[in-house]
């Protein structure tokens, strides 16, 4: 009685193994299906309902975070005049953000130090405005903000690329740049003064000899 049962078991396992292999293959096929899903993964993918995956914003629709209800923050104006103050207090952290954003978006034309001689100007773009003129030093902050948000002259607007808070961070950094290029000797920290005095002496000595 034992032997037939034994045989049946072996026979069934032999019949099972191709099934198992087929199942394993099916499972692996399943993996591939997960890698290619019936969804719109890329922004330009065509959609039957909406034209394409990344939909156009409908006219007059206001995306979350884009409600322009604060005149100073969003338009850089105060009571119809160019704003003379920042909409929020400027901290060291904001200045660092401003530097990073300025170097990415402004430096190609305005240059890293803000003299209007960035690499794109060297390539043939009309000379960008230098921030180190009396006019620009006394210009209200709203003027800088509005240039970023709406563009000015041949400068296109950067509204799509630089969000509101980062625009103000850039303006703050431009103020810092202006200060850095036009600082009075008496305003400098003592150690920098000492450093300058030393370099000055060295230079004089070098020139003298």
């Amino acid at each position: 009685m034992l032997t037939p049962m034994h045989t049946t078991q072996r026979a069934s396992s032999r019949r099972l193994s191709p099934l198992l292999i087929a199942l394993a293959l099916l499972l692996m096929a399943g993996c591939r299906n997960m890698q290619q899903q019936p969804k719109l993964a890329a922004p330009y993918d065509e959609s039957v309902l909406f034209g394409r995956a990344a939909r156009e914003i409908l006219p007059e629709a206001v995306p979350v975070g884009f409600l322009r209800d604060d005149e100073l923050l969003h338009t850089g104006m105060q009571n119809g005049e160019l704003a003379t103050e920042f909409p929020f207090p400027i901290t060291r952290e904001i200045l660092e953000t401003g530097r990073s954003q300025y170097n990415a978006f402004c430096a190609p034309c305005h240059g890293y130090a803000g003299y209007g001689n960035g690499v794109i100007v060297v390539e043939g773009f009309p000379m960008a405005r230098s921030f180190h003129t009396e006019e620009m030093r006394s210009a209200p902050v709203g003027r800088f903000y509005r240039a970023i948000a709406y563009g000015v002259g041949v400068m296109y607007d950067y509204a799509a690329r630089v969000p509101v808070d980062k625009r103000w961070a850039i303006v703050a950094y431009i103020r810092a740049l202006q200060h850095s290029q036009n600082a009075a000797y008496a305003e400098l920290p003592a150690e920098i003064q000492a450093q300058l005095a030393q370099t000055g002496t060295q230079t004089t000595e070098a020139m003298g000899s």
Binding site: A104, Y156, V162
Partner: peptide, 24 residues
């Protein structure tokens, strides 16, 4: 020209998708 990646691919910093710039 040493233009920063973000000058064009800004959504890499702001969103999930790396992003291709618009022609603007």
């Amino acid at each position: 020209l040493n233009i920063d990646c973000r000058y064009c691919h800004i959504s890499a910093e702001q969103g999930a998708y790396g992003g291709i710039p618009d022609t603007h």
